[in-house]
Each structure stands twice: as C-alpha cells, then as structure tokens.
Design a protein around this nucleic acid. Structure first.
Lengths: 153, 153
DNA sequence: AATTATAATACAATATATTGTGTGTGTAAA
DNA sequence: TTTACACACACAATATATTGTATTATAATT
C-alpha cells in the first residue's frame, strides 16, 4: 500500500481490527521509509444492483431507501435503529443469494415484509399497507385476520 | 469479513493482489460456511481536505479538478495521461506531508507548477499564465527569460 | 471483430498479519 | 456534562495472508 505521505510502496500493518458489524476491516499501517502512519479500510466490493420499479424504470439499489421505508413503518414502535439495520442487511444478503443484477421492487418489498413480520406485527401491517397499496380498511382487516389465523394453527 | 451471501463472520483469503499504482489491494475471500467467494478492496482512508479559494470560499479538494487544470495546460504537448496522474498524486502527497485540513488554492497552484516545470516548460508557462493571471505578454516574456536564465547558471 | 485490461482461478514457498487485552483521547450523542 | 463510541497506541502469542508464475474468462475500448 503506497504511503500517502512519501509514496513508498512498502509498509507494515501495526494494527488490524474488524468492525463489529463485520463489514469492514480497519488497518493501521506504517511506512517503512518515512515511518509515518496511515489508516486503510477494507470493504466488500458492492456489485451494483439495479432495482426494477413497477413502472419499468430502473434505479440503483440503495440501502438508505429501504432503511427509511422500514423506519417510517416503525414509527413509535419499540424497534431500534440497529434492528432496522439488521433487516436491511438480511434483505441485502437474501438478494445476493438469490438474484443477479436486477431485482424488482416488488420482491424487495416482500423480503422486507417477511423480515418485519417476525419482528413487529404492527410495523409489518403498516409497511404492507403502503407497499401493497391498501385501498380501504377492509384490507387491513383481512391482513390482521390472516396473521391471527396463522397463529392459531 | 462478513459473507455477503450468508452473513457468516469467518472466511479465508484465497488471493490477494496489490494494484500497480499501489493505492488498492484486492482480496478474494471464501466464506468458511457457505464456501461462496467474494471480493474486497482495501484503500487508504481519505481525509477530507478543504481548499480555500482566493475569495475565501472553501470547497472539497478534488483530484479531478487539478487533473483537468493540468490537462488543459498540456494540450498538444507530449505528456501522457499517466504523467498527469503522477503529478496529481505527487501534489497530493506533498499536501499530505505539509498541511492539515486546509490548504489555499494558491499553494496548490504552486505545487502543480513546480512539478509541471520539471516535466514540460511550455505546459508550465501556460499553466502559470492562467494560474497567476498574466495581464499581458510581457509577463510571458519575463517568465520565459527567468527559466532560460536559471538554466545558464 | 479484434484488442486490451482487469478479474477469477490454481498452487507452492515464504513472510507478515491477526487477535486479545488494556490505556488514553477526541468527538458525538443523550 | 456525562456517557458512549470509534480511533490511536503498545505488546505478545498465534495463524493466516502474500507473492510469483501462469491460464482462462469477461468486460471495456477501438
């Protein structure tokens, strides 16, 4: 790794820590010529995932959008930011497992819903109402009865 | 490094290559649970350098801007893109050595000029004429005589 | 279509990074 | 202002990454 101070190509790692979330490694390096220190980060290469929206337009997949979508559904619910992040990461992982370069926004919505359902039913129903575009309250009713029904089996 | 497919936290590096320019290391990793492979990149953390312009406004330092500035000065000159990149990198390195978070655009100009002077005098004079805002051709004359004078010493 | 560059793959010999534990510091959040 | 959190620093014991060489695949460029 080229020293940002003197440009020398050799250095040694004097410390190396993985972030708790496991998505980054930080290394502290020292240049073998000028002895100055600098920090590097190792990250997973993100393949650019395209999301196909219902009208056919495509846009870059963004963790942030999913995050805010879930966040809205979780308003005033006992769900922490970390828990939302976990869902986002899980959804992303499932996407990596199952899909190539494109994924429809519908499928993303389903993945989010599956994960949200386990965590918080209120948030789940809220999210579903937005995602599946509930037209009137009977749809809420149906969805809730569905959930309750599943539990009694 | 967390597996992007299954989320497992352990993996092994099966290949590791440094880019020729020395600013990146690419690692090929394999998950110890699902055996899927993925790629990571290690890069130097970029500290955000602010450039103070002559009117006092600040903006983020950008390699691209310097690059295009030099490129203009090198029009029709026998200077390759790589050589320009090298100057940009050298300037950046000098900045890292000497400065903290802020640097005046004037000083950047000087650094560029120093490096350009060694490489190509025509480009240097062009760059200087823009950078130091030559008012008339006598300034070109002065600059050229200065260079020629330096050589005879 | 031909060319170039970059990435993925494999394998073997060698060198260097990683991880735990602990201290201190600066900065952002509560 | 007190509390967290992330980063810098140090050291020691252990495990794993790095680098050369080479072939093939894929994407980008002309």
């Amino acid at each position: 790794m080229k020293c940002p101070f003197c440009g020398f190509i050799e250095d040694k790692v004097i410390d190396s820590r993985e972030r708790e979330d496991g998505f980054q490694i930080r290394r502290r390096r020292e240049c073998l010529r000028c002895n100055k220190r600098f920090t590097t980060y190792e990250e997973i290469e993100e393949k650019i995932l395209m999301v196909v929206k219902s009208d056919g337009r495509r846009e870059k997949f963004s963790k942030e959008k999913i995050f805010t979508g879930i966040q809205k559904a979780c308003e005033k619910r006992p769900i922490s930011t970390e828990q939302i992040s976990e869902i986002v990461d899980k959804v992303k992982m499932e996407m990596n497992q199952k899909f190539e370069n494109e994924i429809s926004s519908k499928v993303i919505g389903q993945l989010v819903m599956e994960n949200l359902k386990i965590l918080d039913e209120v948030a789940y129903v809220r999210f579903a109402s937005v995602y599946r575009q509930f037209k009137d309250i009977t749809e809420f009713k149906k969805e809730v009865e569905q959930i309750l029904g599943d539990k009694n089996e």
